[in-house]
């Protein structure tokens, strides 16, 4: 399907929300791909991190909400550390997760996690989990 681009379509409500939640200048990204090249979890993603931001630039946020990529992002910020334009992609990922959770609710049920798991899981996993799954 041919995607119709227009002033309205590239500035839709979802794009505005990504911009607001992430606090990032979405148009600053010039698509060099360095984020995708260095991402430690890109191998498992269904869409490259750089493509995520490109979809937002094109106003195609709705196509991102079902993607696995936004949930695989570990918020490690390797991308942001290396980005030549200072775009914090992990915040954009976070914004997209927030939109999903606002729309569909949280996937995490903290009470269902056993105390043993809480003891054993690395702290990073908890922080990542909260960042990702908590409303």
């Amino acid at each position: 399907m041919r995607v119709r681009l227009s002033g309205q379509s590239v500035h839709n409500e979802l794009v505005r929300r990504v911009e607001e939640y992430s606090g990032q200048d979405l148009m600053a990204c010039y698509q060099c791909g360095k984020c995708a090249a260095g991402c430690p979890v890109a191998f498992a993603m269904d869409m490259l991190p750089s493509q995520v931001i490109r979809f937002v630039q094109l106003g195609l946020v709705d196509r991102l909400l079902d993607s696995k990529t936004i949930w695989l992002c570990a918020a490690c910020q390797t991308c942001y550390t290396r980005c030549p334009k200072g775009v914090d992609l992990s915040r954009i990922m976070e914004a997209l997760r927030e939109i999903v959770m606002f729309e569909k609710g949280s996937y995490i049920n903290y009470d269902a996690i056993s105390p043993r798991d809480v003891m054993e899981w690395p702290q990073q996993a908890f922080i990542g989990g909260f960042r990702k799954y908590a409303v």
């Binding site: 399907m1 041919r2 995607v3 119709r4 681009l5 227009s6 698509q31 750089s50 493509q51 490109r54 979809f55 094109l58 195609l60």
Partner: peptide, 9 residues
């Protein structure tokens, strides 16, 4: 960059 065909009116 996304591989998507686009159209502008």
């Amino acid at each position: 960059l996304t591989g998507l065909p686009v159209e502008v009116e």
